[in-house]
Amino acid sequence: MKTTLTLIALALVCSGCKTVAPMLNDAVRNMSVSDVQNAAAKAQKISEGQREFTQPEEVALGSGIASNMLGAANLWSDKKAQRYVNQVGLVLVAHSERTDLNWHFAVLDDMEFNAFAAPGGYIFITRGLLQSLRSEAELAGVLAHEIAHVVRKHHLTAIKKASNRELLGEAVNAGTAMAVRNNKYSGALTPALAKLASVGTEMYARGLDKDDEFEADRMAVVLTARAGYDPYGLPAVLQSLQTVDPNYAGLALMFKTHPTFQARLDLLARVMTSDFDKFEKNQTLEGRFKSQVAAPKAGK
């Protein structure tokens, strides 16, 4: 029966697939009304899963992933730093193409060096990476890279590619329904959406396509320049991280999910031409950074 349903679903989705039609007659003869209804519902879900996510659906899914991210690491208890990271992030967002999203930034209480972006505008940086930085321009470079992933919907596209269409269809419908019910997207997700968020979260341990990472780097240096920051903040962070012993456990996830620092720097070197010379006097804001982000304490 499973084969039959799949056949029907296939036929309903791509109506006009001539090779399926003769087999379909036999299959339909053996079916009950509820079988047909189920098959139609499944086909409906599959075709739903092929369309683009609406913005409320993207936000609902992103909030589910963000919730999982916060299950993996706590929020850092330093409220001043949390607020500061939001301020820097929102300055950058104002120069992005998605000012209509409700963006949220958070520092995760974890010592590894990393940052993450979930669909819908949820951005994370680890305390380890934050405290290793030297200026607001460097922080802006890291956040701008993550903002670029959301602007280009890199994770959303990857999740779509990695998920089965039936689950996608079920989840995005649920997402729509929930978005209509409330304007806030946090809290309990429907089972299908939670499942999709779970699939999406596991993807963060594998990483995006390398080209998505390179694109986010290229966009980040422009976003920081637009906002008035020294655009060399991001390359400076990548060079600093290059000095860390690559066997250091706090870099393991970064290496698994990103191209090498040198590959990223080489590509930035090719695009950061004399066009960027006019930003030489842009702000780096070391002083403000140090006043807002406490230095790490040995033994703590």
Binding site: S67, N68, L70, G71, A72, T201, L253
Partner: peptide, 14 residues
């Protein structure tokens, strides 16, 4: 202090 990857592989909402 490095537990993110484990949390991503076994997602648990908060």
């Amino acid at each position: 202090g490095l537990k993110i990857e484990e949390g991503l592989r076994n997602p648990r909402p908060n």
